[in-house]
Design a binder for these strands. Structure first.
Lengths: 110, 110
DNA sequence: TCCATTTCTTCTAATCTATAGAACATTTGA
DNA sequence: TCAAATGTTCTATAGATTAGAAGAAATGGA
């Protein structure tokens, strides 16, 4: 039995919460890269998204067509109540565990 | 390539940081249960610990024998510099992502 | 019209991780 | 000497991570 959201699930949900307007694959991917400073492959965005959807923690709908060059219809996502509940659960554990930690980032410019 | 510590790795490291005195299997397990309010099997403590040790993020040593009933020698763990660095990396991403979140725990007494 | 280009999603597969608990080891007290 | 207590190691199954190839759909220029 799974205890908590996995790391990618957590990050995807949090980013979903923060994106203004429609949140879809590439969008989410860019935000993840921006926020973490790391490379996120396409798969490492969609696979957790799919799993979250199967578990009912996000839901998706087809986005409006934008007047851009080409491109297939966007699949947009939003967090469900269930998703928020799982995040809340994590938040609680985080508060307990992280609030006691000092700032660890001493000269992390490697 | 792995981006961040997994959830169990994170929690084990944080708990390791917080335990006063010697931190060993059962100890860590109890603290995890206390902090999360969930059941942690023995394996779900030792498996991440082993992996963390293989990666050099914790190190272990044999604990002193205590005057208790019976029992095999304790294997005690502590975080290494590398472990703190990985935690610092997580802390940074967390701050970015979680600091914007409101408190989500509305009536979570289910 | 047709096709190259762009934008986006789906699928897949290898590797790694989570989780539970059985098995094993060591010490002590009756 | 052995049952009980206290710990750790081992192992196996299910599930997750990650990258990227393949597929799909829309657009605009020749």
């Amino acid at each position: 039995m799974k205890k908590y959201l996995s790391r990618p699930e957590e990050f995807v949900l949090l980013v979903l919460y923060q994106i203004e307007g429609e949140a879809y694959g590439n969008n989410i991917r860019k935000k993840l890269a921006e926020v973490t400073g790391k490379y996120w492959s396409i798969g490492s965005v969609y696979v957790p998204l799919d799993r979250l959807e199967n578990k009912g923690l996000v839901k998706s709908f087809t986005g409006k067509i934008t007047p851009e060059r080409g491109g297939r219809a966007k699949r947009c996502y939003e967090i469900t109540k269930g998703g928020l509940e799982r995040l809340a659960e994590l938040q609680k554990a985080h508060n307990t565990l992280w609030s006691k930690m000092p700032n660890l980032s001493f000269g992390e410019d490697k």
